[in-house]
Amino acid sequence: MTELLSFIDAVRPGLGAFLLLVGSLLAIIGTVGVLRFPDFYTRLHAASVTDTAAVTLAVIGMGLLAPSWVVMAKLVAIWLFIFLTGPTASHAIANAAHTAGLEPLIGRQGRGEDEGDAS
C-alpha cells in the first residue's frame, strides 16, 4: 500500500503536466473547429469541446499538481461553475440567434461538391 502511494506521488507531477498539455491541445482543436466550420450553429458545437473536455482534462491535470486540499477545492469549484454555466451560456447564445431569425445551414456540407441544400 505504501509502495503504491509513493508510486502515485512519484508519477503525479508528470501525469498532471501531461493531462494539462492534452487539455490545452484540445482547446486548440476546438478553436480550429470554430475557425473552420461554415455557420454559427456548427461553430457552437466546436466551442463546446473546449467547454467540456478541455476544461475537465486541464482541471484534473492541475488537481494532480495541486500542493494542498484548498487548491483542490478551488479547482472543483471552477469545474462545477464552468459545467453549470457553460451550457446555459451556449443555450442563451443559440436561443438569441434563433429568436433573431438566424437560419442554420441544413444538410450535408463539404465533401467536395455541395449537394441538396434544404434551407
Partner: peptide, 12 residues
C-alpha cells in the same frame, strides 16, 4: 511541460 500548456492556451 506546464509552460508548453500555457503557450498552447495562448495560441488558442
Amino acid at each position: 511541460m506546464i509552460g508548453a500548456a500555457a503557450l498552447a492556451f495562448v495560441v488558442a
